[in-house]
Design a binder for these strands. Sequence first.
DNA 1: GTTAATTAATAGTAAAACTATCATTTATGA
DNA 2: TCATAAATGATAGTTTTACTATTAATTAAC
Lengths: 228, 228
Amino acid sequence: MKNLLKDIKVSVNEKIYLKDPESTELGKRIVEHAILLIDEIGFENFTFKKLGKKIGSNESSVYRYFENKHKLLVYLTSWYWGWKEYHLVFATHSITDPEKRLLKAIEVVTASVEKDESFSHINEVALNKIIINESSKSFLTKEVDTENREGYFLVYKRLVTRIREMITKVNSDYAFPGSLASTIVDGALHQHFIKDHFTSITDCNEKVSPSIYFKDLVINILNIKENV
Amino acid sequence: MKNLLKDIKVSVNEKIYLKDPESTELGKRIVEHAILLIDEIGFENFTFKKLGKKIGSNESSVYRYFENKHKLLVYLTSWYWGWKEYHLVFATHSITDPEKRLLKAIEVVTASVEKDESFSHINEVALNKIIINESSKSFLTKEVDTENREGYFLVYKRLVTRIREMITKVNSDYAFPGSLASTIVDGALHQHFIKDHFTSITDCNEKVSPSIYFKDLVINILNIKENV
DNA sequence: GTTAATTAATAGTAAAACTATCATTTATGA
DNA sequence: TCATAAATGATAGTTTTACTATTAATTAAC
């Protein structure tokens, strides 16, 4: 699977960038080091000036690829969810049993990225940390409705929709498949965050992953039989 | 209940502010209009200069109460969760049946604030909108561990802990009471957000509230009998 | 009614978040 | 391979943010 995924280009909505960073060497360096720098100093402290310095390039050059750092964050989250979607599709397409399929899907979307799969220039481990710590800032803005209309969050919504459909396949009587699917995706990021920072309010830790918690949750809610 | 709650002072960790805004008229005006202004223009666009102008006062005066706008946000979220905690305690303390108690607690923490209860100078409807849209920014920072050690998030964690304990009372065999409690509190905010902005990925709407979804979820997970 | 505390007004700084211009390097294709 | 276009780099400049410092004016307290 790793090899198959290696050569896939994750496609991101063209409106998010001014110039496709995948189209040039500089663009790739910008994305590569933006990920490392945001992970290192946090999104609030991240600036294009610092990024320019880090890649031995210029602030103004970065501005030719992304309007501002918010758009860059939207780009990174969109890329991440697109990448997760590929993993999900690959990991589940050969599974015919709906229950097994759903559980595998949950495993994929709730799992944290442990080692860099070297998908081109992108460090997925660092990117995953950014998604946990920063991604909600990409939509928690006053511009969310305009940007949503422009399609900035399509990949994310499509991923949630895929899980919703799998839930419905398992139990068509369940009344809240969409809410459950969005709770799993958002909730997993939240559990990952609090297991690292607010340990007292979660049961997740090194041994019990958010995956285990959410699979158990879904098994209970949808009345999946034990021997799946 | 409304009258009882009216005279309670929600206490916020002293380290969060430089000078207690509840102690002076100006302080109250700062908090009152900060809530309205952040709700209006969003946290990113909010500045102490704009707030000073709005209250006919000075930027420098605001700085005497709060170090910066981040601390002000921490203050507001802490106040909100303290206020919610009072509601939860009042609404549940007379209920002896653990299952009914838990469901009432979930109702309280997942419900959106529909009308201003006029708790002194604070507009709870606007504040609730801020909690939905901005509150996660208060802990999604590089300083989260330091600030957590200083007790900035104690009220929030205590509220989650109360729900965790209620869950355990209902079903002591359930393995993830903490994760479930935190999922409910965080997940409810998320459902409120997406029902307003990403309608395609939720089943919540004007008729189906996040409360209904989460109560059903908990009933299923903890095997609560129907006639509660 | 004096003194202390609080608030208001003003000014100033450093950095962020850009925009604009022009020089230089690199790529393309006739 | 030379000319031209495109991309990048360097520099400078603007506005706004996020403060700090100082002093003046109010208000409160004893």
